Amino acid sequence: MSTLPPLVEPAGQLSEEELVRYDRHLLLPQIGLQGQLRLRNARVLVVGAGGLGSPALAYLAAAGVGVLGVVDDDRVEVSNLQRQILHGTEDVGRPKVESAADAVARWNPHVEVRTHPVRLTSENAMEIVAGYDLVLDGTDNFATRYLVNDACALSGIPYVWASILRFDGQVSVFWAGHGPCYRCLFPEPPPPGMVPSCAEGGVLGVLCAALGSAQVNEAIKLVTGAGEPLLGRLQIHDALAATWHTLEFAADPDCALCGTDPTITELQDYEELCGLPPVQEPVPTVEVAELRTMLAERAEGRRRFTLVDVREPHEREVSLIDGSVLVPKGAIESGDGVALLPRDEPLVLYCRSGARSEQSLRALRAAGFAEVSHLEGGILAWQA
Rank of each mutant, 00 (worst) to 15 (best):
272 E>P: 00
176 A>M: 09
299 A>Q: 13
194 M>T: 15
16 E>H: 12
53 G>A: 10
41 N>C: 01
217 N>A: 15
310 V>F: 12
233 R>T: 08
169 G>V: 10
52 L>M: 04
266 E>M: 08
197 S>Q: 05
46 V>S: 09
311 R>P: 09
75 R>H: 14
279 V>P: 13
122 S>D: 05
167 F>R: 03
76 V>E: 00
14 L>V: 13
179 G>F: 10
130 A>W: 02
159 Y>L: 14
162 A>L: 02
139 T>G: 08
130 A>D: 07
81 L>P: 14
307 L>K: 01
254 D>G: 14
96 K>N: 09
185 L>P: 00
145 R>N: 01
253 P>Y: 09
66 G>F: 01
105 A>R: 15
122 S>Y: 00
184 C>K: 07
130 A>F: 01
263 T>N: 06
58 A>C: 03
85 I>W: 15
248 E>L: 04
144 T>L: 07
66 G>W: 01
207 L>C: 03
315 E>D: 15
195 V>E: 14
49 A>N: 13
323 G>S: 05
42 A>E: 09
284 P>C: 09
6 P>G: 10
114 R>K: 14
126 M>D: 14
119 R>I: 00
99 S>F: 06
25 H>A: 04
316 R>T: 04
378 G>K: 06
220 I>K: 13
361 L>V: 03
298 R>D: 14
311 R>G: 01
222 L>V: 04
372 V>M: 02
236 I>D: 05
217 N>V: 11
87 H>M: 01
306 T>S: 15
380 L>Y: 08
266 E>N: 14
45 L>W: 00
189 P>R: 01
319 S>M: 13
92 V>G: 04
209 A>P: 00
331 A>K: 08
30 Q>P: 01
43 R>P: 07
361 L>Q: 11
261 D>C: 01
344 D>N: 11
235 Q>K: 06
192 P>D: 11
211 L>F: 10
230 L>K: 05
1 M>L: 00
277 P>K: 08
116 H>M: 11
332 I>H: 03
163 S>T: 12
221 K>F: 02
369 F>P: 03
71 V>F: 00
